[in-house]
Simulated assay, not measured.
Amino acid sequence: MTETAVQEQITTAITNIGPADVEVDTSYENDSTYGDELSSYSASLTSSVLEYRHENGRRYHKYRDGAYLLPNDESENDRLDMVHEMFLLLLHGKLYLAPIKNPQRVMDLATGTGLWAIDFADQHPPAEVIGCDLSPIQPTLVPPNLKFLVDDLTSDWEYESNPFDFIHARYLCFSFKDIGKLVKQCYRSVKPGGWVEFQDWDAYPISQDGSLSGTDLEKYYNEVYGAFEKTGVEVRPGIKLEQWFKDAGFVNIQVEKFVIPYGVWPKDARLKKVGAWAQIQAEASGYESVAMAVLTRFENWKKEEVQILANKASADARRRDIHMMFNFYVVYGQRPEK
């Protein structure tokens, strides 16, 4: 399937189908592959923030060096933009699921390339929108009601005196060691009656038919995610979000679980489109992006060894007889009115 064909296929879709309900499209089995307010740790855009760490052919943030182990170069930024489109497809074009009304002050945590914040600001012109991230990689031409801050969200916040109506976070796995603390910080920084929504993965893959067992894909995830877990970084936040929200004190908590297949193997046309996007973003250096820093810095792997591991995983991901998928969770809750 050409990229143009995939793009033409990809339209808005949504699914809450559990893994056991995903039927394989057996017609593909004969083919072997398919193609003004800052926290105390905020930083202005000074030369120190704009410095980068270059390593193994990739670029990483320099501010709070080592706090985030994925790159922030153009290749990774392009991949993250693709992930944004995949999530829009998964959520039927919706940026969020929380029942917010007329938000006036909104924050997007770990905003990355800023696409979610840009889209939200466009859709809600009266709202003041703030996007926070360690890296100043966001565009400069943005809606007038949006601003980006360079901030270390793991440090203590100072937003309680001017709280938000809505706080959003998406795709924090591989980024934080204590997401439960982050959820509590959100609780303190949202207005009574305000909403907080986290969208995140259980990043360990599954296959309902056992087709993932013994593959290079399985080896890749065991090696890479095992290394992340040794450093204390959270790789399965999705399955823990509900409890973190309860512990923080939120009420009216809602949990919605989605499945994201990798590839166009599902028989269901909508899941096939979601899987196509997932495959495209993974092929855009996704396997190497996630693995390179954590394996070379903490597990003494050489660059070439990581590339071989990533290439083998990528080759397996193109096999039609491997039916890999991930669970993805959207959890939102409300701070009590009183």
Rank of each mutant, 00 (worst) to 15 (best):
residue 242 E to R: 07
residue 248 A to E: 00
residue 260 I to G: 01
residue 282 A to I: 05
residue 175 S to M: 13
residue 167 I to G: 05
residue 171 Y to E: 15
residue 181 K to P: 01
residue 201 W to R: 08
residue 230 K to C: 04
residue 197 E to A: 11
residue 238 G to N: 09
residue 218 E to A: 15
residue 196 V to W: 02
residue 250 F to C: 01
residue 241 L to N: 02
residue 242 E to L: 07
residue 233 V to D: 00
residue 210 G to D: 07
residue 190 V to I: 10
residue 238 G to Q: 00
residue 179 I to Q: 07
residue 205 P to S: 13
residue 163 P to C: 09
residue 220 Y to N: 02
residue 271 L to W: 00
residue 236 R to Y: 06
residue 260 I to M: 14
residue 281 Q to S: 07
residue 239 I to K: 15
residue 226 G to M: 03
residue 278 A to T: 10
residue 281 Q to D: 06
residue 193 G to K: 11
residue 169 A to G: 15
residue 210 G to C: 06
residue 220 Y to M: 07
residue 222 N to L: 11
residue 204 Y to F: 12
residue 167 I to V: 12
residue 214 G to Y: 12
residue 221 Y to H: 10
residue 221 Y to D: 08
residue 246 K to P: 00
residue 186 C to H: 06
residue 247 D to F: 01
residue 225 Y to R: 05
residue 242 E to H: 05
residue 281 Q to K: 11
residue 165 D to F: 02
residue 169 A to E: 08
residue 274 V to P: 00
residue 211 S to Y: 09
residue 241 L to K: 10
residue 234 E to W: 01
residue 244 W to K: 07
residue 173 C to L: 13
residue 239 I to V: 05
residue 196 V to G: 06
residue 258 F to Q: 13
residue 250 F to S: 00
residue 209 D to V: 03
residue 203 A to E: 14
residue 205 P to D: 10
residue 268 D to A: 10
residue 193 G to V: 12
residue 279 Q to K: 12
residue 183 V to A: 14
